[in-house]
């Protein structure tokens, strides 16, 4: 871990690195550790005194310039594939959801012969997806947890976007243009989730999504 290798650094720097290690996967924490350490070393070289007071000043100046560990960790979360995916899904969700709501109302979906368990499961899954995506955007959770929650939400959304069009097409007496539009929007969302899902899953499992294929 980054903090373990930096025993020669000032306690202020070590404390920052320990916080980065707690909030970020090791690869990310290692990379940032190198930057903070290099900044500290530059301030140390620039300082006139290398006594304990001078080292403390250099450490404080390095942290002020580099940014607090939480600021840097938050910036990683903001740029993470999980949060970008959650933001895109929440932004487009009302459009897709509104379209499907119009389909269900206009086709009197409550008259479809669908088991109550299926209706309840679909409703619960939808609520769970929205809650999970809001959690990803708002809650102060760790990098991997954020991606695990996003991956779960994406999985549920895939099931919904497959089940809803299939059910509507088979249960609706005659597919309307609105149904075709809603199914098309679901298909686009499936494609988006498939394109981003790999990076989200990789970040959940290994800590970083890596470049797009």
């Amino acid at each position: 871990m980054a903090g373990d290798r930096l025993t020669g650094d000032h306690p202020l720097v070590r404390a920052q690195l320990a916080r980065l290690d707690r909030r970020l996967p090791h690869d990310l924490a290692d990379e940032v550790a190198d930057g903070l350490r290099s900044t500290y070393e530059r301030h140390l070289r620039a300082g006139a005194h290398h006594d304990s007071g001078g080292r403390a000043d250099a450490a404080a100046a390095a942290i002020a310039e580099f940014g607090d560990a939480d600021v840097v960790a938050d910036a990683f979360l903001a740029a993470s594939p999980g949060r970008l995916t959650a933001r895109a899904l929440l932004a487009t969700g009302p459009l897709v959801g509104g379209c499907w709501a119009a389909v269900l109302v206009s086709d009197r979906a409550w008259t479809w012969p669908v088991p109550d368990l299926g209706r309840s499961a679909a409703g619960a899954a939808l609520l769970l997806v929205v809650a999970a995506l809001l959690l990803v955007l708002r809650a102060p959770i760790g990098y991997r947890a954020l991606h695990a929650v996003t991956a779960t939400a994406c999985g549920l959304l895939v099931l919904l976007d497959l089940a809803l069009p299939l059910t509507a097409v088979t249960r609706s007496p005659s597919p309307t243009p609105l149904l075709v539009l809603a199914a098309g929007l679901s298909a686009v969302r499936l494609a988006v989730v498939a394109a981003r899902g790999r990076a989200v899953l990789a970040a959940a499992l290994t800590g970083w999504g890596g470049p797009r294929p």
Partner: peptide, 22 residues
């Protein structure tokens, strides 16, 4: 005027977008 540590997430974002390779 930005904390220099936030350059790292920006680099990762560019890598994610396929503009740089790490």
């Amino acid at each position: 005027d930005l904390p220099t540590g936030t350059v790292y997430p920006a680099l990762r974002r560019l890598e994610q977008a396929g503009l740089i390779r790490g």
